[in-house]
């Protein structure tokens, strides 16, 4: 790195910044604590709890994400997609790291299946306890990062066209469910009560795949390398040390 070449700011400017920031911190603390002392209500807690029986899930955070403010979540997935398209448009990915040694490969053989299992658990438990699509997607993406660090140039993602389908799957299913509720004469993403739980699980399942794909692709950091240069896919390679153990 070029840290040693980084130009130093002027000492007086740095001092001025520090003084102003200390004042800013004091001001923020004062505003917050006077507000916290006089805050009247409990925000949207009561409303969220009251509507919970009609949301299809029993975890209020999942109800906010996938029911009350589902449109926000749909748009956030679009933000992720936009970021990945920006990364891909900047050129091909770097070739990645050399193949991992036996120790790292053995670690990955243990950790990656555990991450996939935990991701599935978090996705399922999200309906009634902390968990859900974002947590599960982050865990799966962590598995992809480990595979990339272990020498798989594509981080165990499928080929490019399949990646494109995975990247839009969550948004597509989300939007289709919204359109279906529109066609059925309800509001956009206004689920019928009897189906709400299953619709949320369906959306979350595909959202998990999309989030995992987008985050892993962001870590790979460019358009995926063409398949002929790809080594054997990570999962198959990782089987061998697992059997020995």
């Amino acid at each position: 790195m070029r840290n040693s070449l980084e130009p130093k700011p002027q000492r007086s400017a740095a001092l001025l910044v520090v003084v102003l920031l200390i004042l800013l911190a004091g001001l923020l603390q004062w505003v917050y604590f006077t507000h916290a002392a006089t805050a009247p209500g409990a925000g949207l807690t009561a409303l969220a709890q009251a509507e919970l029986p009609r949301s299809g899930v029993t975890n209020p955070v999942t109800a906010v994400l996938l029911n009350y403010r589902a449109l926000d979540t749909l748009l956030e997935l679009s933000v992720l997609l936009t970021a990945m398209l920006g990364i891909w448009s900047l050129g091909p990915a770097t070739p990645g790291y050399q193949q991992a040694g036996a120790v790292f490969a053995g670690l990955a053989a243990w950790v990656v299946p555990l991450l996939i299992l935990s991701g599935g658990y978090l996705l399922w438990i999200g309906a009634k306890a902390p968990g859900g699509a974002f947590q599960a997607g982050a865990l799966l993406a962590a598995a992809g990062v480990i595979q990339r660090l272990g020498g798989d140039p594509r981080a165990s993602l499928p080929n490019e066209s399949a990646q494109r389908w995975l990247a839009i799957a969550g948004i597509g299913i989300f939007a289709l469910v919204g359109l279906a509720t529109l066609v059925a004469g309800r509001g956009f993403l206004d689920y019928p009560l009897a189906w709400a739980g299953w619709l949320i699980l369906l959306i979350e399942t595909f959202a998990t795949l999309t989030i995992a794909t987008l985050l892993t692709a962001a870590y790979v950091g460019g358009q995926p390398p063409p398949s002929q240069t790809t080594a054997t896919p990570g999962m198959h390679r990782m089987q061998a040390p697992d059997r020995k153990a």
Partner: peptide, 22 residues
């Protein structure tokens, strides 16, 4: 606890990660 800020943070973390990658 109010679930709305929790949901905002949850999505915010993922969006921050991808924005950093970009």
């Amino acid at each position: 606890a109010d679930p709305v800020p929790h949901a905002l943070v949850l999505t915010g973390i993922v969006v921050a990660v991808s924005a950093t990658a970009l």
